[in-house]
Amino acid sequence: MTRTEIRNFLITIVLFALAALIPLSDSGFWLSMGITIATYMVLSTSWALFSGPTHYISLATGAFYGIGMFTVGVGIELLPYWVLVVVAAVIGAVVAALVGLATLRLSGVYFVIFTLGLAELIRQIVTWVQTTMGSSSGLYVLTNITEPIIFWELLILGIIVYFIGWWINRSRLGFALRIIGNDEVVAVHSGINTAAAKIILFVVSGTVATIVGALLAPRLSYIESSIAFSPMLSFIVVITALLGGAQRLWGPIVGVIPFMLVWDFLTATFPNQTTLMLGICFLLVVYAIPNGFAGLIEKYSHRLRGRT
């Protein structure tokens, strides 16, 4: 490890340790906000692992998240909860691999549309299965898992995602993805199996999103497909990742924290205009800060360094 890597590693550990203290503060608001932020930290960071280097915009996060929730909802009467989390991860990985195989040869626009449709497709299948089997539209997930536990689980998953991201960045796979993101023609002529590289990353990010869904299922206690497969979630993930900067591993979290605080205020103040708000946020991010906060921070720190 280089000196900067050790420094970043220590900073990360300290920040996570501080965050882990939040549930001890006894504040319902900050715990609830903490869970939301931790959720999107994990989702956006793993989204950026795939979309940052490849520039493919995936709107499939909600689909995988929903798969995770429903796996827990369906299986909770049959299997121990932690087994279900593993089962959900496997299902998420398989679906991601299949979707990747089917779509990653498509050009960017088709990929975006396909991934957006995916969440709706899976939701319709789930609803159809439920109605034909005559069960009710929702599922109860009653466990003794409390909110602090969910929060800590998300933090641990976050650490794992950062570790995976750090490892990928310094591996041949990460180098291959950067080449692909720059010029796919050069990539294939350098011997890179571009389809395999993209699918591996898509599977990593899809699996993580599925696990997040599975971890959050106990928090809802009653799971409905319209909540589990929300397209809103996919859009917020994209916005926060772009706001923070998808090119850096630490970019998304820099976007998630301010966005979720503002978002919480906006949705409380204008509860009926959330979709409109989301659209405005999206436009602001894309036009005003195309490289995200990470891009801004790096630009100014370069300038500062340049002066000395």
């Binding site: 041949r172 180098f175 291959a176 720059n182 010029d183 023609v185 002529h189 350098s190 011997g191 890179i192």
Partner: peptide, 27 residues
Amino acid sequence: ARTFQLVRMLNSMTVLENVEAGGVFGH
């Protein structure tokens, strides 16, 4: 291995990385 009629650079990478790209995954 080949070069292209219209030169193809990996613009977000350094000169060194542009060259390294040819030696990792190929022959």
